[in-house]
Design a protein around this nucleic acid. Structure first.
Lengths: 139, 139
DNA sequence: GTATTTGCAAATGATTTGCAGTGCT
DNA sequence: AGCACTGCAAATCATTTGCAAATAC
């Protein structure tokens, strides 16, 4: 059984070929939109329908196998659920890089909300800018 | 001339009643969706069209008078451009609260990206959780 | 007066839904 | 057999566009 199959079953979902393909594509690309998932999956499973992609993304986000990454001015992207990290979003090419959180990050978030009676479940940090590759193209 | 009129003109936009109404509503509500802006503005300007709302939001975001706040699993909201802050997003009632950044926030973001050759222009921090009001309802 | 902006209605695009058929278990 | 999942096509919903009339400056 593949890792993807295990991941799905652990979360109460049947391990269909379609679902595993979505996870594989998301894993390989890191962050990917619905349309791009479709374009990739259809290469290995030509009969898949866009509706199936949508249904499964919704389901896997509910089960927290996938995570939605909302991006200002763009369609959201999806990534495999993984440990806390921040996103570097390039406004030129649209690519998203992950950057692990450092130890002080937690302290800062705690400090920011310690006086609040707000119970935090999930954090989401996007830093928008220009990636190394695009900087060299512009300059 | 109202503050909204001045804000628009400073950014090269004509101060139409429609635009000022949008800014006023965004200001009053803090964070608001396109549909909710429409529902509010139509009360004071019954003939406004949804297309006008869309066109102006796009324009004002381009001119950086408004800022889009993308939210996981929801339609984006819009707020007046203002100094850096983070968003506390309540996943129960959907409300968004602002929280000012503290001095160490800058240092943390710097530390996170100092080794990167990534030029940051804008940051966007959402913390998802349950607000005080909703906590008391659930418990 | 002129360029911009508006409101309408139609077009487009994205997402969701219903359902019959398929494939597991 | 029974239930969940898929693919298709249609339905819905959100956003954008084109254009004639109205408005800001």
């Amino acid at each position: 059984m593949t890792d993807y199959a295990r991941l799905l079953k652990e979360n109460g979902l049947k391990a269909t070929f379609q679902r595993m393909s979505i996870l594989e594509v998301a894993d390989k690309h890191g962050h990917i939109s619905v349309e791009d998932i479709y374009d990739e999956v259809i290469k290995v499973h030509p009969s898949i329908s866009l509706a199936t992609i949508y249904k499964n993304i919704i389901l896997m986000v509910e089960k927290m196998v996938l995570v939605e990454v909302p991006i200002a001015g763009k369609k959201p992207k999806y990534e495999l659920a993984k440990s806390d990290h921040i996103h570097l979003v390039c406004t030129e090419c649209g690519e998203v890089e992950d950057k692990p959180c450092i130890s002080t990050t937690d302290k800062v978030f705690l400090a920011l909300t310690s006086q609040e009676h707000f119970k935090i479940n999930r954090r989401q940090v996007n830093l928008y800018g220009v990636c190394e590759g695009c900087q060299s193209l512009v300059s």
